[in-house]
């Protein structure tokens, strides 16, 4: 009975977000076009270098950049949805009603996470298809099952980190969302989204070890470019499993601390 109530609540969170996507459908199209445009500028870099006289395997480098752009878009979608847990609700004024509902916070955040994964995967798959088609990329060895396994396991870690950034607008209604972008930027810098982490300075390489995006990108590139199957991806998968196992409880704890802070200081309300 209790479990059914919790699942009903979780489905309510997903239901609400589906409604919002439907109601803002044209905005979704506009943002997708923006994502395609920004990914395009990055993926074109390989061809650009070739035209200036550089010698490189254009197909391979383009694929490396494309994977970086798509994973980055996926990560951004997850962070964006989870940050909306607080930011959008505060703007609409519904935050008080959501936070006074008898919905376990873990279930609430998990519901946001489930939706974020579904939404992010759909968007990332579309982006990958559009870009791969535009550049006529050849991926003769691609092992999509391996890539999917990496994304599936990495998503747990991304949600855990997303929970930590989701609480920022609760602590600072004015600047919290921007702080979330800062955390995203840090991941972008250290995780080898558009380059190998080997080129990073030693201190950043050390930080890269703790970023789930590092292993995600490495695993997906191995699968898509090298054709590595799930069995050969263990060196990327086990760190993702460990980071995921730590980041979810840590994310819930951080969010709880932020919620307590907001309730103590009267910040859990519509106007901040």
């Amino acid at each position: 009975m209790m479990m059914r109530t919790e699942l009903t609540g979780l489905a309510g969170v997903v239901e609400r977000n589906v409604y919002l996507v439907k109601r803002y459908a044209w905005w979704e199209v506009a943002f997708f076009v923006y994502t395609v445009a920004s990914s395009y500028t990055i993926v074109l870099i390989a061809k650009g270098i070739q035209t200036t006289g550089g010698r490189l395997d254009v197909n391979r480098v383009t694929t490396i950049l494309l994977i970086g752009a798509v994973v980055w878009a996926y990560l951004s979608s997850i962070f964006e949805v989870l940050t909306d847990t607080v930011a959008w609700e505060r703007w609409e004024g519904t935050i008080e009603y959501t936070f006074m509902a008898p919905l376990a916070r873990s279930v609430h955040l998990l519901g946001m996470g489930v939706f974020a994964i579904a939404y992010g995967l759909l968007r990332a798959a579309l982006l990958f298809a559009v870009m791969a088609f535009s550049f006529r990329l050849a991926m003769p060895n691609a092992n999509f099952l391996g890539a999917f396994a990496v994304v599936a396991i990495a998503s747990v870690s991304f949600i855990g980190i997303g929970m930590m950034t989701a609480v920022l607008p609760l602590i600072s209604p004015e600047k919290g969302t921007q702080l979330g972008f800062m955390a995203q930027g840090l991941l972008l810098a250290v995780s080898g989204v558009y380059y190998d982490v080997a080129v990073l300075p030693a201190p950043l390489r050390a930080v890269a070890r703790f970023s789930p995006a590092t292993y995600t990108l490495d695993g997906i590139r191995s699968s898509i470019i090298g054709g590595t199957g799930v069995g050969g991806l263990w060196h990327d998968l086990w760190p993702l499993v460990v980071i995921g196992a730590v980041s979810i409880p840590l994310g819930l704890w951080v969010f709880h601390q932020g919620e307590v802070h907001a309730k103590r200081h009267g910040k859990l309300k519509r106007s901040g």
Binding site: T8, G9, V13, R16, T94, R270
Partner: peptide, 24 residues
């Protein structure tokens, strides 16, 4: 303040809110 997601319909707002209270 009647706080709602303003782009959503009344039914949509009520439907998801009911689920938060375990109503199927």
């Amino acid at each position: 303040e009647a706080s709602f997601f303003k782009k959503l319909s009344a039914f949509e707002n009520l439907s998801y809110a009911a689920r938060f209270y375990g109503i199927r």
